[in-house]
């Protein structure tokens, strides 16, 4: 046998190459697409492991927005604009952190920093929820106008969810801040403006935009210290 084997063949390396190919499960189309888009298999895997982007979570989001579509079509009230920002804010609060990501402790010792992991997932969760909201708005009718009405509040509540979850180190606290914050705004608007005016009143959008910028800045500052610990 050894007479037929070139002396420079490293069987251990050959075995590892072959075993690595055989044992490696096929990568899903979504992850492959993300890896191509981001130019990084690592970031693609970071995003597909996001707790608030698993199939069950996405299905729940689709169901909630589906109900919003039906109610909006029947009543004419802006239910999609009410629900879509909350879904994004809660999803971002549950994107990363202790008790949310099973591998959180290990992730904190990795070369790709936890801050990078967090921000990648935040962007991904926001993009997915914005896409779902856009589809829901498209089903109801005037997608562009409707989308403009919820996109800014979505950015504000996403920043609020991230800031509250980062400050407290708790995803449920972040989610509660999103739900409570939005409920207070909507109820306050209902008293002062009537109905669901606060959800899509164009006069409030500059305020929501300013809040989004402030909260996003706070979240970024917190992620640098509270999330990484360094």
């Amino acid at each position: 046998m050894s007479d037929h084997v070139p002396p420079d063949v490293d069987f251990g390396r050959v075995w590892a190459e072959v075993a690595g190919e055989i044992w490696s499960p096929p990568t899903g189309a979504g992850e492959r697409g993300l890896a191509w888009l981001l130019g990084s298999p690592a970031f693609a895997r970071v995003i597909v492991t996001t707790p608030s982007l698993v199939v069950s979570w996405l299905l729940a989001s689709v169901v909630v927005l589906g109900v919003g579509v039906v109610v909006t079509a029947q009543t004419g009230e802006p239910w999609i604009a009410l629900l879509a920002p909350v879904l994004a804010g809660v999803g971002i609060a549950f994107a990363y952190g202790p008790g949310v990501d099973p591998a959180w402790e290990l992730s904190r010792s990795m070369a790709i920093s936890e801050r990078t992991v967090l921000l990648s997932r935040v962007v991904a969760v926001f993009a997915v929820n914005a896409l779902l909201g856009l589809l829901a708005s498209f089903v109801v009718g005037d997608a562009l106008t409707l989308t403009l009405h919820w996109l800014v509040p979505m950015a504000m509540l996403s920043a609020l969810g991230l800031a509250a979850a980062s400050a407290s180190g708790s995803a449920p606290v972040g989610a509660a801040a999103v739900v409570l914050g939005w409920a207070l705004i909507v109820l306050g608007g209902s008293v002062s403006l009537g109905g669901m005016a606060a959800v899509q009143d164009a006069r409030l959008m500059p305020i929501y935009s300013a809040l989004a910028v402030v909260l996003a800045s706070v979240a970024l500052a917190l992620s640098n210290r509270k999330v990484t610990g360094w």
Binding site: R13, W15, A16, E17, A19, G20, E21, W23, S24, P41, A42, R45, V46, T49, A103, L106, S107, M110, A111, I112
Partner: peptide, 18 residues
């Protein structure tokens, strides 16, 4: 997954995992 997070070179990952 953790080999990716450790920023190992792509070509080395599968054999190293095996």
């Amino acid at each position: 997954y953790f080999a990716l997070l450790k920023e190992m070179p792509s070509a080395e990952i599968r054999p190293a995992v095996a």
